[in-house]
Amino acid sequence: MPAQARRIALPRAARIGIATAVTGAAFALPLVTAISAQAHTAPAAKPQQSNSSTADAAPAAAPQQAAPAAAPVEQSYQVVGGDTLSKIADAKQVEGGWQALYEQNRSVVGANPNLIFPGQKLALGAKAAAPAEAAKPAAPVAPAAPAAAPKPVQTAKPVKPAPQTPVQTKIEVAKPATPAPVTVAGVASYVSPVASPKLGTAYGVAGSMWSSGHHTGADFVVSTGTPLRAVAGGTVVKAGNGGAYGNEVEIKLADGKYAQYAHLSSIGVRIGQTVTAGQQIGLSGATGNVTGPHLHFEIRTGAGYGTDVNPIAYLRAHGVAI
């Protein structure tokens, strides 16, 4: 037989089997290769989730600004009967005393610091209000603690209130203070002989109804029963009926002059008594030779009639506003 390949004759069934096996092997090879590649490929990393149970810290609160300082409060006081600048300054603790109080209220009081009237409103100066506390910065928020298991709620027993004893409040009414004369640098001050003076017949008016030929004093228009005051400190030298003057009081003042009050309805001092500026000496009236109730007031250089000087000019020279 020649040395070349010879076709081996196989049965038909054998040939079909061989072909099928070859075809299956060819199909299976790429499938096995793909599966092997997937098996050797590393799985993609998954994003990790935080296991921390701590809550995010809250941002720190911004510091609060301090409240602005309160504006000064202007204080005032309304004058009542019997008040003086010295008493008001002491009672209201005015810095600088009555002198500072007078300088602050000169436009209200006028040229005479010793003459103030009920109803006048005096400024006491401004006092600063208490400074507000600066607000503290808010504390940082602590991390929230894990919630605890709820506890059973227990109902509290009602508490019986203790009996209260009624409080009794005792109200005490302050007694009015006796007005004291104001002194300036140790010298007795001067005041008007009546409060809220209103002038009538002036000093020096000529007329036959006066024995001297002129009016020797100044008349103040007041109704009967009006309190009369010593214009300055001194000693009483007359206190009684003075004829045409009716009931009269005469005071020798510290400077040697004499203050004479006429036509009084009531006399409240006695001869030899020492009086101070502003002290009540009697009540006005219409005794003696008069046409109606008023106060006839004189300033004399001597104790007797005919030594008169202008009483209004004298009082104004001593700081009394009339």
Rank of each mutant, 00 (worst) to 15 (best):
Q4Y: 14
R7A: 13
L10M: 08
R12C: 03
R15K: 15
G17T: 12
Q38D: 00
H40L: 14
T41F: 09
P43L: 11
K46F: 10
S50V: 12
P72R: 11
V79G: 01
S107V: 13
V109Q: 05
V109Y: 04
V109P: 00
N112V: 05
P118D: 01
G119W: 01
G119T: 04
A130P: 00
A132T: 08
V141N: 01
A147L: 09
V153A: 15
V153G: 14
V167D: 05
K170M: 07
P176N: 12
V184D: 11
S189A: 14
S189Q: 06
Y190F: 14
S192Y: 05
S192Q: 01
G204N: 08
V205N: 15
G207R: 03
S208V: 13
D219G: 08
V221Y: 13
T224F: 13
T226L: 09
V231S: 03
N241C: 14
G243A: 08
G246A: 15
I251K: 12
I251F: 12
A254G: 10
G256S: 07
G256T: 06
Y258E: 04
Y261R: 02
A262G: 01
A262Y: 00
T274P: 14
A277L: 01
I281W: 07
S284C: 07
N289Q: 10
V290A: 11
I299F: 03
T301N: 11
A303P: 00
G304M: 00
D308S: 05
G319C: 10
I322D: 00
